[in-house]
Design a protein around this nucleic acid. Sequence first.
DNA 1: AGTGAGATGGCCT
DNA 2: GGCCATCTCACTA
Length: 195
Amino acid sequence: MPRLPREFYVRKTESVARDLLGKTLCVRTRRGVERARIVETEAYLGAGDRAAHTFGGRRTARVEAMYLGGGHAYVYFIYGMHFCINLTAGAKDSGEAALVRAVAPLSDPVPPPRAKMRTNGPGKLCAFYGITRADNGLDVTAPGSRIWVEDGALARGEKIHRSPRIGIDGAGEAREHLLRFSIEGNPYVSGRRKT
DNA sequence: AGTGAGATGGCCT
DNA sequence: GGCCATCTCACTA
């Protein structure tokens, strides 16, 4: 399965975040290529979005990868111990990206009842796949890159759920925007409530 | 089921 | 110095 091309990412960021649901996140690790189905994302819309790291056009070394244009990894370090991965979207210099919040490992599509979830949150999935700041700025459409996305679709009956983004209480009115996308009822969606 | 706090470090003012 | 696009565990009830 070929990696998704640049054109997939150079579109309206809201659409990219939504369309990433059901696609396959691929990471090359020591053990080989690990694949997982994306089940939850959030869109961050650049200079006009109070919740975005690029709000107001802020352009610092940390955030620079968000301006690379669609199809790059933006990995940031948060709370002193977690990494989170975004896939940039839209045009170069737009400062927009889709945060990958949760994935379902394809080797283990249905979680055993007692299995501990390791990929149902942005910090957790990065730890599980060994994604760190070393991956920041990576072109995920480039042949041979360590991280990429392959095509995939929603299954029959699966629906997309829209809700407010998580963990952005300081973002004023942007807090209410429905920019979080998840596959309704999927057990790997982050948080305690799956419905 | 819901709430609260601690861990822990880089970034920005 | 204060703030974080988080996670886990302890505590209430």
